[in-house]
Every structure is written in C-alpha cells, then in structure tokens.
C-alpha cells in the first residue's frame, strides 16, 4: 500500500511531507517531556518488530491474494500515539530507504497514510471511545479489531486520493476505489485479528505496558523480550513459508485488468485497446525521415515532440557514455609476491 514517487506531483508530495514533518516534530517534542529512559530500547525493538512483521505476506482467505501486516494501531495501543507514530515513521523511513518502497518524495505520504492515520486519527477518535474504560475485555477486543480495519481502509483511501490529486495516473476514481478498498478490507480483517492476538499476548506477558499513556511500569523488559521474540518469529521464520501470491494491491489491479479485458466485444474500452494496439504495431515499420511531420497538428504540448524524443534518446546515450568514461574500476587484486 505504498504510494510511489512516479505517481505523485510535487505539490501533493510536498504537502504530505509538510504535514508529516510537522507531526514528527510535535510527536518528538511531546515525547521528550514524558519519556522514560527504558523507552528508548523499547521503541527501537517495537519498530524492528513491525518492520520484521511487514516482511511476511499472509494469504487472505478466499481470494488467492496476500497482504502484509501494517501494525499502526497495534503500536498505538502498546506505546501510546506519540511513541507509536515515531516508531511507525521510523519503520517507513528505513523501509523506504532499503526496499525503495515508494520513494523519497512519497515518504511523507506513506508516513501519513500508515502512521498518522492509525496513531492520530483512528486510535484517539475510534479505538479509545469504542474501548471505553477498558473494563470489558470483549469491548476492547472489538475496538482493536475494528480500529485496525478502519485504519487500513483510510490508508488505502489516502493512496487513491493522493494519486488522483496528483493527476499523473488517469485511472478513474471509481475503478481505483473499487480495486483498492475491498482488497484492503480483506487484509484489514486479518490485520485486526492479528492485532487482537498480539495485544492479548502482551497483556499476559506484561500488563503494565498496556496502560494507555505509557505508564512507567516496574520493568518493560519482559515486554521488550516478548516483542523481540515475536519479531524473530514473524520476520525471520515465517518469511520462509510466506505465500508466493502477489501483494494485495497488485492482485486487485490485476483483477481489474482482467475484467477490462473480458468486456464484451464492441465495448468502447476494448475497441480503444485494439486501436491502440494497432497504432503501436505500425510503429516499427515506420522509416524514420530526416525531418517530416515533426509537430503534429494536435500536439500543443511542447514536451511531446519528435525532436524532444530524439534529443532525449541522444542525451541518454551521452549520459551512459559519460558514466562509462568516469567509472571506477574496483582495485585489482595484487599479484601474490613470489
């Protein structure tokens, strides 16, 4: 569910970074006032736990697709919103740097969708009221499950809206929504169940850690250990048996593509696809003239000209040449002294 640089306009990407950056600054300042020293390693381990958990795909029952754990609401319940938001943001930053999920500009949007939404919207506005004073165990369980479902729905909605607002992709809003929301509902149901199970586990191992505002308990060590163990279990182990199905997002789009192709003959979309295919198929036969109809009659965009394409291709070759010229050879292994 990562937003990508390639689909993002600088305005939308910049706005999302501004919102996210402000939230990170506020969360850091608030947390600095209330933080216990033990919380430094705790937050690190919690972040590593979510990171490891996200590397595992689980199969979504009845769809043949798979999704992975997001973990935002779980962290909010365990750490409180500020620490949880910073931990989620750190996960998404390292993930963005290492796996290039999304990109540098899209990082702001991704932290907003998967960090800000669960920690600062769903947790205080939905989970807390639903969970009540915490006297009813079933109520708390339902609140955690439902909160995780809603957080994922809002996150997916964020991806759709950011893509639409950027205007790079032309996919119609209704089709995009129809592809994104149901699959993330299915993932969310499983995510909710996992969230509840992990909260129950921590409740047994270290009940103190669950005090809404992270109340200093006797020792968070056992909770740290429990979560570290969970991280090892989920990340290191299950990934060996993780499902090979495509990620939910890709699956939902693939399904959409399939339906488009299966549309009845004569359907406008189908016709258009065929026409486009014809057009492209002609391209290789075309002998390139020196000049010719360079500026098409309906080409108002100066960027989309033949000379632009040719010049770009030439520049690409030059760039490759430049790279080849300045390349650094790894130092040769020295010949062994005789």
């Amino acid at each position: 569910m990562h937003m990508a640089d390639a689909l993002l306009s600088p305005e939308v990407g910049g706005a999302m970074w501004a919102a996210t950056g402000a939230a990170i600054a506020v969360a850091s300042r608030r947390l600095k006032r209330t933080m216990e020293p033990q919380q430094v390693p705790l937050m690190g381990v919690m972040g590593a736990f979510v990171f490891a958990a996200q590397m595992v795909n689980f199969t979504i029952p009845g769809t043949g697709s798979s999704g992975h754990f997001a973990g935002g609401l779980l962290l909010s319940v365990l750490l409180g919103p500020h620490a949880a938001f910073l931990a989620m943001a750190s996960v998404l930053v390292v993930q963005g740097l290492f796996f290039a999920d999304g990109g540098l500009l899209a990082m702001g949007a991704n932290i907003f969708n998967m960090g800000f939404v669960p920690c600062y919207l769903v947790h205080p506005r939905l989970y807390r009221p639903l969970a009540g004073d915490g006297s009813s165990l079933n109520r708390r369980r339902f609140a955690a499950w439902f909160g995780a479902v809603v957080a994922l729905q809002l996150g997916a909605l964020g991806v759709v809206l950011e893509t639409k607002a950027s205007g790079i992709a032309e996919l119609p809003l209704a089709a995009f929504l129809a592809a994104m929301q149901p699959i993330h509902l299915a993932i969310g149901v499983v995510e909710g169940l996992i969230t509840v199970a992990v909260i129950e586990f921590v409740r047994r191992a270290e009940p103190g850690i669950l005090a809404a505002a992270p109340a200093p308990s006797a020792s968070p060590r056992r909770a740290v250990i429990a979560l570290a163990a969970l991280a090892i279990v989920v990340g290191g182990f299950l990934s060996w048996f993780a499902s090979a199905h495509p990620d939910g997002l890709e699956w939902s789009i693939a399904r959409l593509t399939g339906e488009t192709e299966l549309a009845s003959p004569g359907d406008a979309v189908h016709e258009a696809a065929a026409q486009l295919q014809e057009r492209v198929a002609v391209l290789p036969d075309y002998a390139f003239p020196g000049t010719g109809d360079v500026q098409g009659p309906s080409a108002p965009n100066a960027g989309a000209t033949v000379s632009g394409l040719v010049g770009g291709a030439l520049a690409l070759v030059l760039a490759a040449l430049a790279g080849w010229l300045v390349r650094r050879r790894p130092p040769r292994a020295r010949a062994p002294a005789t």
Binding site: A302, G311, G312, L314
Partner: peptide, 9 residues
C-alpha cells in the same frame, strides 16, 4: 533534449 533533437533532425 528538444534543442538537441532539433539540431539533429
């Protein structure tokens, strides 16, 4: 790129 292409074509 456009300048280069114009020059070439």
């Amino acid at each position: 790129a456009r300048l280069l292409g114009d020059l070439l074509l």
